[in-house]
Amino acid sequence: MVRGMKLGLFLPLLFVAPLPTSAQEELARKLSLPELSQMDLPRWRAFIRPTEKERGYAGVRWLPDFASGIRRSEAEQKPLLFWAMNGHPLGCT
């Protein structure tokens, strides 16, 4: 009884183990993709490109590099607000 219960618990785990990647690729090939047409380009453009809200960071006038920021900070006599990320914060991450 106990042995049977253990099997019942573990068998499902065996069945959900990750598939080899070749199998993942085969699964991917079963995913349908939408038909594309030149007529639909404007709809896709609006769908994919970030909204104004998603580009909210653009509401700040960012200089694109640290050295320019330090130089401008000195010139304008304002502190530097420096946004630092792995991958450039304005994109390209």
Partner: peptide, 16 residues
């Protein structure tokens, strides 16, 4: 944050 940023010079860069 956008309003407060006016008091600073703002720059962004890749940090690695």
């Amino acid at each position: 944050v956008i309003a407060k940023a006016e008091s600073f010079v703002c720059a962004a860069d890749e940090v690695w």
